[in-house]
Deep mutational scan, measured.
Amino acid sequence: TGYYDVLGVKPDASDNELKKAYRKMALKFHPDKNPDGAEQFKQISQAYEVLSDEKKRQIYDQ
């Protein structure tokens, strides 16, 4: 599964769309709200870390 799929956004998503999707998913799977969501929360955080950084995103998109 790709990072875009993890966040539920298209590859041409804007920074604002990425942030909005990340916040929505992070709230849904945060371990405090969803004890079984810890692994998914890590994936969401990693996806956002890469896609929100312009240089990392360019490398990922290659």
Rank of each mutant, 00 (worst) to 15 (best):
K42G: 05
L51E: 02
R23H: 14
F41K: 01
Q43K: 13
L7G: 00
K28F: 08
F41G: 00
D12P: 02
A13H: 01
K24G: 06
D15R: 14
L27C: 14
K33N: 14
D61Y: 06
Q58M: 13
K56L: 13
Y22C: 09
K24I: 10
Y60P: 04
K33T: 15
A21E: 00
E39V: 05
S52P: 02
D32G: 08
N34H: 09
D15I: 15
H30G: 07
I59V: 12
F41D: 01
D61A: 04
G37F: 15
G8Y: 01
E54G: 09
Q43R: 12
A26D: 05
Q40N: 05
M25E: 08
Q46E: 13
M25C: 13
M25W: 05
Q46Y: 10
K19M: 08
Y48S: 03
K56Q: 10
L27S: 14
G37H: 15
N34K: 04
D36W: 09
V50D: 03
T1H: 13
R57M: 05
R57G: 02
D5R: 08
N34G: 07
G2Y: 15
Y60V: 05
D61C: 05
G37K: 06
L18W: 01
V50H: 07
D15E: 13
G37R: 06
K33Q: 11
Y3E: 01
K55W: 08
I59Q: 13
V50E: 05
M25T: 04
F29Q: 02
K56I: 03
K33R: 13
R57D: 01
Y60G: 05
P11T: 07
D32P: 07
E49S: 09
D12Q: 07
Q58E: 10
N34A: 04
K19A: 12
K28G: 07
K42T: 08
K56D: 04
G2K: 12
Q58K: 14
K10P: 11
I44E: 02
G2S: 15
S45Q: 15
V9T: 05
A47L: 02
Y48G: 02
S45L: 15
D15W: 13
A26V: 14
T1C: 15
Q40L: 13
K28N: 10
T1V: 14
F41H: 03
K24F: 08
D61V: 01
K55M: 10
A47H: 00
Y22F: 13
D53C: 10
D32R: 07
A26R: 13
K42Q: 10
L18N: 00
S14C: 10
K19W: 13
K20Y: 08
A38G: 10
D61W: 04
T1M: 14
V50A: 04
A26C: 15
Y4F: 07
Y22E: 04
K24N: 12
S14K: 05
L18C: 04
A47P: 01
G8M: 07
N16F: 14
E49M: 07
P31V: 06
Y60D: 03
P35Y: 04
V6K: 02
M25Y: 04
R23E: 15
A26P: 01
D15C: 15
L18D: 00
T1A: 11
K20P: 01
E17P: 00
D15V: 13
Q62L: 12
L7Q: 01
Q62G: 08
K20W: 07
K28Q: 12
K19Y: 14
